[in-house]
């Protein structure tokens, strides 16, 4: 067990954590402002990945693929907000769960219809492929490093948008009192559509970026969606800061757990049994983390509301 390996795994954990943040940020914004639980957020992640893969295959440009992912996912988001989601804001959570569950079925099966059941592949662009040497002599894939930096940049942009801009003021006001800002002349319907499309664009971006290191296939969004839920529960619903901290915690726990838990068990168990126990336990590690946070703070690390 070398320092290099540990640092490399920490970077991997950061990378998956920051991508998770892009998903969780949209979910938590949508819940914070509109009070809506959106199971179809994973479908928007998938839509982003498929748009990117299709556009990159057609044009040969990864950058155009990303543009297509952002455009496709935010358009899909705006469309479902206008047609379906809008009718759910004043319904109870049960109706929201069911309607967005129905949307997952439609999106997944629709994507299968258009693209078939086989996974698509999205290649890492040439300029970003290959390893890069970091200070300290660690060789690390340039693309993954770019993901970390790009994710951090998006996170910074999002914090700036919410803290410093006019639309951010409206979003924060919408979280507190929707009647009041409607009375002050803000078009609340347009604000909601915007927030939903923004969340969708973040999810689509994450799908496209991660799609280049995993395969792009139907059903890719839901495991990420559930991880994003774990993230939000840990961070506290409605808090962007909580989503960031939660996402990094989940990403690091998941990555480090799957590498180091088997090693840890090898210290006092037979190798085969240690690998088995370690693998089982690491698959549960983030949920155990969630349970611990729940016992300690039922509303999450940064959550105010129950």
């Amino acid at each position: 067990m070398t320092t290099t390996l540990i640092l490399e795994q920490i970077l991997n954990g950061l990378q998956s954590g920051i991508m998770l943040f892009l998903m969780a940020a949209g979910l938590t914004l949508i819940f914070g402002v509109m009070g809506l639980i959106n199971l179809a957020h994973g479908s928007l992640y998938m839509v982003g990945a498929f748009c990117a893969a299709a556009a990159a295959a057609a044009t040969g440009s990864f950058a155009l693929g990303l543009v297509a992912a952002l455009a496709g996912a935010s358009a899909a988001g705006a469309l479902i907000e206008l047609v379906v989601i809008r009718r759910l804001y004043d319904r109870d959570h049960l109706d929201q769960v069911l309607a967005t569950f129905a949307l997952i079925l439609v999106f997944s099966e629709g994507t299968r219809w258009v693209f078939g059941s086989f996974p698509l592949y999205l290649d890492v662009p040439d300029a970003l492929s290959g390893p890069v040497t970091l200070p300290g002599g660690i060789e690390y894939p340039l693309y993954r490093l770019t993901l970390i930096l790009a994710g951090l940049a998006v996170a910074a942009g999002l914090f700036w948008l919410i803290a410093r801009t006019r639309i951010g003021v409206q979003i924060r006001a919408g979280e507190n009192d929707r009647e009041m800002i409607a009375a002050l002349g803000v078009d609340i319907d347009r604000l909601y559509t915007f927030i939903f499309a923004l969340g969708a664009a973040l999810a689509g971006l994450a799908g496209a970026l991660v799609g280049a290191i995993q395969s792009v296939q139907v059903g890719m969004g839901e495991p990420v969606l559930i991880l994003a839920f774990v993230t939000i529960v840990i961070g506290g619903i409605g808090s962007i800061k909580g989503a960031l901290v939660g996402a990094l915690l989940v990403g690091l726990t998941d990555t480090l757990g799957s590498v180091f838990l088997p090693e840890l068990f090898k210290l006092f168990m037979a190798p085969a049994a240690a690998t088995q126990t370690g693998a089982s336990l690491s698959s549960m590690a983030i949920y155990i983390l969630m349970a611990v946070v729940l016992v300690w703070r039922p509303t999450g690390l940064f959550g105010a509301r129950a």
């Binding site: 819940f31 639980i37 959570h93 769960v97 495991p223 559930i226 839920f229 774990v230 939000i232 529960v233 619903i237 088995q276 693998a279 089982s280 698959s283 549960m284 949920y287 969630m290 349970a291 729940l294 016992v295 039922p298 509303t299 129950a306």
Partner: peptide, 28 residues
Amino acid sequence: LSLRTSGVYFIMITLAFGQMFYYFAISW
């Protein structure tokens, strides 16, 4: 664990525990 919370938290937590058992069964 999950009934300490309510509403959306409860939905997300039950979903997450479901996924935990799913992955555990896969690794078993």
